[in-house]
């Protein structure tokens, strides 16, 4: 059991790493074709659905990544186009891509995000409220202080229980004295 514990901890740590690292896509332009590679933890993503939209929002190309996580499409005309990726049931946030001079595009690498949205409500100036779904939450400022009039009640209750317990134990020992007397009397 002891030897299994470090292995379990290591497994949990590696699971955390997987949870936090999102897939990446890298782009390169060659002969006016955009070549891309979809990876997750440096391994190819084979089931990635990729859709490309031109500057007018029309579907320009679509397809699935191959076994090497790669794919390609002709460079759309115009200054900007959009790439949308879906891996399994997860749709990544759309990537706006800018073409520079027909032989280069930016960004060249993108860390995919999924439904990235503002995370925290501003409760009031100086306080930030975090939703319950956030992974690895850092310590947050508390929003209210426990009232001082009620905080001593459990302590007082504990004291009462301790006193009552001690009293009962003492009573139990006192009971033992007359018991001995009774025992002494019985044979006669």
């Amino acid at each position: 059991m002891r030897s299994a514990l470090p292995a379990f901890v290591a497994m949990m740590l590696s699971a955390t790493t997987v949870l936090t690292a999102e897939p990446q896509i890298s782009f390169a332009v060659k002969n006016r074709w955009v070549q891309f590679t979809l990876t997750h933890d440096d391994k190819p993503v084979t089931n990635g659905m990729v859709r490309v939209f031109d500057g007018f929002g029309n579907t320009f190309a679509e397809g699935e990544t191959g076994t090497n996580g790669q794919g390609e499409f002709p460079l759309p005309s115009g200054h900007q186009f959009r790439v949308e990726i879906k891996i399994g049931d997860r749709a990544a946030d759309p990537i706006p891509v800018t073409s520079i001079g027909g032989n280069r595009i930016v960004p060249e690498r993108v860390l995919l995000s999924f439904g990235l949205a503002p995370c925290c409500r501003i409760v009031s100036r100086g306080l930030v409220e975090r939703p319950t779904t956030v992974i690895d939450p850092p310590p947050e400022p508390v929003h209210h202080k426990e009232s001082s009039s009620t905080s001593w009640l459990p302590a007082a209750g504990a004291l009462v229980l301790l006193v009552a317990g001690t009293t009962l134990i003492l009573m139990a020992f006192r009971q033992s004295i007359p018991t001995e007397n009774t025992l002494a009397k019985e044979p006669s």
Partner: peptide
């Protein structure tokens, strides 16, 4: 008595 004392310690 022991139960109450234990309860008191836990509560404290």
């Amino acid at each position: 008595g022991l139960g109450l004392m234990a309860g008191g310690i836990v509560m404290g």
